[in-house]
Amino acid sequence: MRHFPGAAVPLVLFAAGWLFCAAGHAAEPARKSADAPAARAGQKEAAPQWEGVDKTVIEKYAEAAGRPAREPYINTDQGDLLLFCFLVAGVIAGFIAGYYFRALFPPRPKKTEEKTNV
């Protein structure tokens, strides 16, 4: 663990910068619509933001080639059901990851405990 904290600093800064930029980008359309509601009235609805590259790339080229995607066989993409499924999957996977992480990397005994035991 000797190298971890120092090396983590640029990573945390990088992640924070990334989040900051994303938040700024996400706030932009709302700001624009608040500034110019009249100008927006006659326009078409803007393209949805933050779509995955499967929509913007894979499905775009697949549709152009006449192979549009069909609905999944078990379609959980209905309302908040998909959010629920992702949450459950995340909890289960997180539990498994945490369980094995603790088995592989057990916490080190604190120095004070070591001294007391000695």
């Binding site: 779509e51 590259v53 499967d54 894979i58 499905e59 192979r67 995607a69 999944p72």
Partner: peptide
């Protein structure tokens, strides 16, 4: 998250 996954029947 939708990304590299190729969707059904493509």
């Amino acid at each position: 998250a939708y990304a590299m996954h190729i969707s059904e029947s493509i």
